[in-house]
Design a binder for these strands. Structure first.
Lengths: 200, 200
DNA sequence: CAAATTTTGGATTCTGTAATACAGAAAGGC
DNA sequence: GCCTTTCTGTATTACAGAATCCAAAATTTG
């Protein structure tokens, strides 16, 4: 009963995440969010309590999306361990390439949130989401690295945990480097070189 | 003539940079800045026009400091090319170790500023400073890599430009990873593994 | 001592923006 | 046709934080 919602809640979250990932929390106004989502302010506040609440939900959805795509790649038994890592990096590069076509870098909600301790402190849920995402990401990466050691595509002397942290570090670094306007082709090279300790 | 300034201008800039590097521009209030610098608001505004102006000057000084320390290491003819890169990474790790003792990660004004396109747009000086810093950083790195290729400490097939970008990427990535609370020892391992394509 | 300038401390103003309020139209279910 | 809910559009409020102002004390030079 009552008029149904005319917009897709998840579409709004995606639009919000798209803004937050490039501008970060503080530099994204509710105005921008309405604009990007194509929703009036009243509707937005009616559906999502506050900017903080919207951010948390957008972050949740953002990491969930990555979690899924990551799992898809990193646990794909058809690929060797090394191929999984390469495919993962390719995904990042592709994202940056697509963003570049729009005239900016892709940005990253996780990098922004990690770099902003105040955000984590103001809402413990943000900290929880980031911690969980990190753990899961590292677990998947370690799995892929172990698989690679078994199938011979990854150096046998590579430590899975250290290797996983390296992959995370390179991805975060790429997010920053991409902001300088470095071309996707170069980003790919950087990514592969960065993982050389695992792949050779 | 007149009462002399009782505080050291550069000390205030350093204190401001210390705040900005962990909280970023938007999440640092003028209150915090006064507090950190031990200066009254009136004095601060008297000496530095505005928060924006203070930020630009703090950023200038921040990158100048790094520029100097970098040049010291990366152009040290007594070290092999590889040793210079290792010393550079050691500096980053050491910074994070020191910050960790204070209970937080070191942060980075450059990473924050790079990730915040709005900042670069609002003040072209910020863009100029970042661009110049990037160029100089890459130049120094390329020099060290070339030196390493000659002295045999760096792989002969390493492309200097790609290598320099890799080093920058790894450093930026470390700034993010450090925020997750990873121990300095691990950070060092990550750094070395990340540069494996150059050092082996 | 006089002039100049900064400091202190607090009060005040200004501004951007998050958030609320509201009236009427629209779109469903019962 | 009635009830409920959401939508549009605009207007208003609330608040945080940047910036200004001020009067009195302090510290220097000449």
């Amino acid at each position: 009963m009552g008029r149904p919602r005319s917009f897709d809640e998840t579409a709004v979250l995606d639009a919000a995440a798209a803004e937050f990932r490039v501008h970060g929390f503080a530099d994204t106004s509710t105005e921008q969010l309405c604009e990007a989502a194509g929703v009036r302010r009243s509707s937005l506040y009616n559906a999502f309590v506050s900017k903080d609440e919207l951010f948390v939900r957008a972050l949740e959805r953002y990491v969930a999306g990555f979690r899924e795509r990551r799992a898809q790649v990193l646990a794909d038994a058809r690929l060797s361990g090394a191929e999984r890592l390469r495919a993962l990096m390719e995904g990042v590069v592709e994202e940056e390439r697509a963003a570049r076509e729009q005239g900016h870098a892709a940005g990253c909600m996780v990098v922004h949130s990690m770099m902003t301790p105040d955000l984590r402190e103001r809402d413990e849920r943000v900290a929880r989401i980031l911690d969980r995402d990190l753990r899961e990401h590292l677990d998947l990466l370690e799995g892929a690295i172990r698989a690679g050691r078994l199938d011979g595509s990854i150096r046998a002397d590579a430590d899975p945990h250290e290797g996983a942290l390296l992959v995370m570090t390179v991805i975060s670094g790429l997010r920053v480097t991409a902001q300088a306007g470095v071309e996707p082709g170069l980003l790919r090279q950087i990514a592969l070189n960065g993982l050389r300790s695992l792949l050779d």
